[in-house]
Computed example of a mutant assay.
Amino acid sequence: MLHFNIRTALTSAALGGAIAVAGTAATAVELRGWNIHVEDYPVSIAMESFAAEVAERTNGEITAKTFHNGVLGSQPDAIEQIRLGVIDFGEFSLGPMGQSIPETNVVSLPFIFPSIPDMYEMMDGEVGEAIGEGMIAKGIVPLGWYDAGARSFYNSVRPINTPADVEGLKVRVMSNDLFVGMVEAMDGNATPMAFGEVYQSIKTGVVDGAENNPPSYESTNHYEVAQFYSLTEHLIIPECLCMSLKSYEKLTPEQQEIVKEAGHTSALLQRELWQEREAASMETIAAGGTTVNTIEDKAPFQEAMGPVYDKFLADNPDLTDLVNLIRNAE
């Protein structure tokens, strides 16, 4: 049975000798945090809330400063710096973590989460704990699971209601074999390209469309050239407010508990802010003439992903239990 307790894993990590045992007094600790987003983004606001709560509840013994706009480096570099303890905390998509933490790759499987609320429940429960086990083993402690929305298809040709509607469409995807396989499994033509090239590529017919969450679709004006937005919600990839295990283990047990609780509280705030941002984006694209369609039955899409899952599990047999835990969740 796949089960995990973060407290147990942290204890094991300490006993393993890689980190000094927690519990030594920590006075006037200043934590440095990485964030790729601008300061008024939902993630950024939630991170500032996290810092404020930690400072207040530790009576100023711990302060946290978040460096926004990616000024501390690229996301892959920052993930490595978190592992090394050079940066103390940060907010990351689980997608890029897959290169160094295999467990995080599971959430990049298409249609693995039935919905955003299901993702919340699973990530706040046993699934999040299982993924956290892999993260802690690599030196990263998850503090809260943030929302990055659901990615859906948009194009300039037709609404997508079934997998057959993807057939023949030229779809821009991120450069990831999982996402290429996802489109190809529905007989579409997957085209990896830089995100900044998408608008012009749709406008000129190089591709018919792409896929992304509502704020990205709206803020880049892609809705001007791809008027059909189909809520497939095929990728629901959560993000994580994380702390370096090296930094975490320097805190007292009481401070560690405060940091974890503040992380979870910030995640609840971020989710609320993200939903508000999504709603505003949906209003904008509707006013701009976008045809939005909801897909009531996603089972045919999930069934079409069989080859994608088969290949992933053949390449990662040790992740079978985790995949099944998510897919079989009630």
Rank of each mutant, 00 (worst) to 15 (best):
K65E: 06
K203P: 11
P215I: 02
T27N: 05
Q302R: 03
E56G: 01
D88L: 09
M123V: 11
L178R: 01
V21C: 08
V292E: 03
V292D: 05
Y154G: 03
A279M: 09
A262W: 06
T8C: 03
A22R: 14
P307G: 13
T63M: 04
M182K: 07
I326C: 03
G73K: 09
A314W: 05
A280V: 08
G139C: 01
K298L: 13
R7Y: 05
C242N: 12
E211V: 00
I258T: 13
G95M: 15
V106D: 02
R277K: 09
Y248E: 10
F312V: 12
G181E: 11
Y120C: 07
Q256H: 12
T284Y: 02
I285H: 04
E211Q: 14
L72T: 02
K298C: 08
E167K: 15
A13M: 10
Y120W: 00
L269N: 00
L325D: 07
L15W: 10
A299V: 13
A20N: 10
M122G: 03
K203C: 15
L169I: 10
E39S: 14
E184C: 13
A148E: 14
N213E: 12
S244P: 09
G128Y: 00
V198G: 09
I326W: 00
R172E: 07
E303C: 00
E224Q: 09
K298M: 08
G149V: 14
N176K: 12
E239S: 11
V54Q: 01
I19A: 06
M182G: 03
V259T: 02
E126N: 08
A22D: 06
M47I: 13
E80T: 01
A14I: 12
R158T: 15
T252K: 02
G149W: 06
T24N: 05
P317G: 00
S115L: 03
P96W: 00
F113W: 07
A55L: 05
S230E: 11
G90E: 05
P253S: 13
A164K: 07
I140L: 12
A267H: 10
V38E: 11
I45F: 09
T204P: 12
A164Q: 10
S100W: 15
F50K: 10
S152V: 15
S115Y: 02
A314P: 12
E278L: 08
A279R: 07
D187K: 02
Q81P: 05
R158G: 14
